[in-house]
């Protein structure tokens, strides 16, 4: 009985933490979402959300988050795969992860310099004879920078999944007649699927609510749910509408996690 009591005592800090920093904010967001801009209790925010403006914004958020996740995965999987084959794989992994330690804002500003009208990218294009282009404030630059930022978060879980896999499994598949491609399709990929899922989660969910990059890199040409929330709170001062969008964002995240959650192995 005593051990149970002390165990409960130890749990108190964690329970408090979750209560204050997880449950309370969600409850507050939910609470504010039921007040309109005048401070009256109403459902107008929810009705407004289903107007074309916000629906379009939601769809475009989804679309960009999807593109970012897809490109990040496309780059990260082969990279992680090659990493496991290198001799000093931990060193290479570290080198890839290091950029993620640098502040997001700093990296965004660095890209402003690189992609700007007189930046490195344009100088290169000049030299190649293509001529300078408008790179900044385009969909391309937004997705490029986002993908760059998210790559380490995708590589890590995939690398771990690949690294854990026993190499004799590959010999076994080969032994049973599988070509390199079949081995990948039937053994390697299914066994690293959990890594891919968690990688997609850590990329897709933040990508849905990116807001700083949308302003700095794409010059507000791309408006995601994240941008909308920021604008409602800071510019329009419509906390109710901002909260409502946040509620939907939270719901979407839960649905996404539930959908991509690791299923029982072996169908």
């Amino acid at each position: 009985m005593k051990s149970k009591l002390s165990r409960n005592l130890y749990a108190i800090p964690y329970a408090l933490w979750i209560l204050i920093f997880v449950v309370a904010p969600i409850v507050l967001v939910l609470y504010y979402s039921f007040f309109d801009i005048e401070g009256n209790l109403s459902l107008t925010n929810y009705i407004n959300f289903f107007t074309p403006v916000y629906l379009k914004m939601t769809l475009s958020s989804f679309w960009y988050a999807f593109l970012i996740t897809a490109f990040t995965l496309l780059i990260s999987y082969p990279t992680a795969f090659l990493l496991t084959k290198t001799k000093n794989k931990q060193l290479w992994l570290l080198l890839i992860i290091v950029p993620s330690w640098i502040n997001l804002l700093l990296k965004a500003y660095a890209f402003l310099g690189i992609f700007g009208t007189y930046g490195t990218a344009n100088s290169l294009l000049e030299v190649l004879g293509i001529g300078s282009k408008q790179i900044l404030f385009t969909d391309f630059s937004f997705i490029f920078v986002s993908v760059y930022i998210f790559i380490p978060f995708m590589i890590l879980p995939i690398f771990n999944a690949l690294d854990e896999m026993s190499p004799t499994l590959l010999d076994a598949a080969n032994d049973l007649g599988a070509s390199a491609w079949t081995t990948f399709r039937r053994v390697i990929f299914p066994l690293t699927l959990d890594g891919v899922r968690s990688g997609c989660q850590v990329v897709f969910i933040p990508a849905l609510s990116l807001f700083m990059l949308t302003r700095l890199i794409s010059g507000n040409r791309v408006i995601t749910l994240g941008t909308a929330i920021e604008q409602q709170f800071l510019v329009t001062q419509d906390w109710g509408m901002g909260s409502t969008i946040a509620v939907f964002l939270i719901i979407i995240m839960f649905v996404f996690v539930a959908l991509t959650g690791s299923r029982k192995r072996g169908m």
Binding site: T168, A172, A173, V187, L191
Partner: peptide, 10 residues
């Protein structure tokens, strides 16, 4: 194989 190398996902 020594460790059997059975496919854990199947």
């Amino acid at each position: 194989f020594q460790d059997y190398a059975l496919f854990p996902h199947l």
